[in-house]
Write a protein that binds this DNA or RNA. Structure first.
Length: 424
RNA sequence: GGCCCCGUCGUCUAGCGGUUAGGAUCCAUGGUUUUCAUCCAUGUUACAGGAGUUCAAUUCUCCUCGGGGUCACCA
């Protein structure tokens, strides 16, 4: 069982989607189930409806969970297991105040050392606990030996007890903390393989520690993907879709970034066939709009002509083929629309070309049908006896409503049946 | 600051002890296309720095410098 865990507090980001895709792809490779877990423990930050929005977006990318779990539904299990740990003296009540802990942290910083809780409350006598009316949290007792993680990408990593620390598993209000909830939930869902961003690497041994304390024996496999940087001013998924990027192109980009695949352009099904976590180098990746555009362009080129035409507001294979010609210079459906729409709109002829255009238009209206551009061009030139380069620009203006663009002969091939419509 | 990771053309990268250090892109030049663009050809450009180990280091080790991550009663 693999899972994608996401909190419904913010719009789905590219790096988060990347993690979802990897988990889904590997689940399919291993022929295991895949679930989505909504980590909705922070009631303050949760955004209404965000969970459904995220699920809808995942669906666009072909990612479907066999079930959707809301973490908040598991709180009774979290509480029960925390209680069990307290009974077994693997966890203890901590009465340390926020201020006091903050001071400790500051002291450690001044001393140039890493901070770890000093276990001050670990061995409080029972009577001190019973009589204490102060609020308290529950901490799990730190492990007494290093915890070693075997990672498909990073290899073997070990973590010291100090680094793992006697961390809090239940807040003062007795809600479970992140690492405890996640550690328990992955156990409850029988998760076998976890792929996540390397920025969460330090959390992994803590969650392992929780499961060890609960005597859970199944070994979960890990792959920590190199972090994706440069995302602060990168567009989010919804914006990219609006800009005219295809989901399959975004998927292609996110799976190929920092990961040498046997071919540059691939589909989800091909990714399932080719992806090999073991060959991913441990190097941070950064978002690159140009690379994404290039991949989007390739996916648009691969579309069936009629399908492509729908993205620019038509349902006509010929116009789709025309749009494909324009992919030489643009890379999103939105940009494509900007190129195609004027062709079928009223002409906007610059002053300098009005004479040529009028003459040419009259000739074209009288012209018979020509299958080839060269014959068409020779005919109208001959009829109008215009000279020098200007007539070419004028002709382009009449045909496309623009002074520049791709090879006009190629454009004519797809436009020749519409000449009567567009040259008036 | 502690701990961890990373450093190859301007950019994205291949490389896993012996390579003329390869590709893509950008840039420049030439050519095709009676315009622009496309397309084709050619060319310039890189192992962060310093010590080791070795017959041999871009590759292994250490140090310096640079970049990133992480150190919550948030998830």
């Amino acid at each position: 069982m693999l899972r994608f865990a996401v909190s419904p507090t913010n719009d789905l980001r590219l790096d988060t989607l990347r993690i979802a895709l990897y988990n889904y792809i590997v689940a399919r490779q291993r022929k295991e189930d895949f679930i989505v877990r909504i980590e909705d423990m922070d009631k303050e930050k949760n955004r209404e409806g965000m969970d459904d929005e995220i699920l809808d977006l995942l669906g666009l990318f072909g990612v479907h969970g066999s079930q959707v779990i809301h973490q908040s539904q598991n709180v009774r299990f979290h509480s029960a297991m925390a209680l069990q740990l307290v009974h077994e003296r693997k966890a203890f009540s901590c009465f340390c105040s926020d201020n006091w802990l903050a001071n400790k942290r500051e002291e450690a910083k001044q001393a140039g050392k890493g901070y770890a809780y000093d276990d001050a409350c670990r061995n409080l006598p029972a009577e001190l606990i019973i009589d204490n009316t102060n609020p308290f949290s529950i901490r799990i007792i730190r492990p007494d030996a290093d915890i070693v993680i075997h990672d498909k990408i990073l290899g073997e990593r070990s973590f010291t007890p100090d680094g793992i620390d006697s961390f809090i598993i239940l807040n003062q209000n007795k809600t479970p903390t992140y690492n405890f909830a996640v550690g328990v939930d992955d156990m409850l869902s029988d998760i076998s393989f976890i792929i996540r961003s390397e920025e969460f690497l330090e959390e992994t041994p803590k969650q392992e520690h929780v499961r060890n304390a609960l005597k859970y024996e199944k070994q979960i496999e890990y792959a920590h993907l190199p972090v994706m940087t440069n995302l602060d001013d990168a567009p989010n998924i919804k914006e990219l879709l609006k800009e005219g990027f295809l989901p399959e192109a975004i998927l292609n980009y996110l799976v190929s970034i920092g990961n040498e695949m046997p071919q540059e352009i691939f589909t989800l099904e091909e990714a399932i066939e080719f992806l090999d976590l073991e060959t991913i180098p441990n190097i941070p990746v950064s978002f690159n709009m140009d690379a994404l555009k290039e991949i989007n362009r390739a996916h648009l080129r691969g579309l069936d002509a009629k399908e492509l035409s729908r993205f620019v507001g038509f349902a006509d294979a010929e116009i789709g083929a025309l749009a494909r010609v324009y992919l030489a210079e643009v890379s999103t459906t939105k940009e494509l629309k900007v190129k195609i729409a004027p062709i079928f709109s009223e002409r906007n002829i610059p002053e300098a070309f009005t004479r040529e255009c009028t003459v040419l238009a009259n000739a074209i209206k009288e012209a018979p049908y020509f299958d080839e551009y060269v014959a068409f061009k020779d005919y109208v030139i001959n009829e109008t006896s215009l000279e020098d380069d200007n007539y070419l620009i004028a002709l382009r203006l009449l045909l496309t409503n623009a002074t520049e663009g791709p090879d006009i002969a190629e454009i004519y091939q797809h436009l020749k049946n519409y000449i009567g419509e567009i040259v008036k």
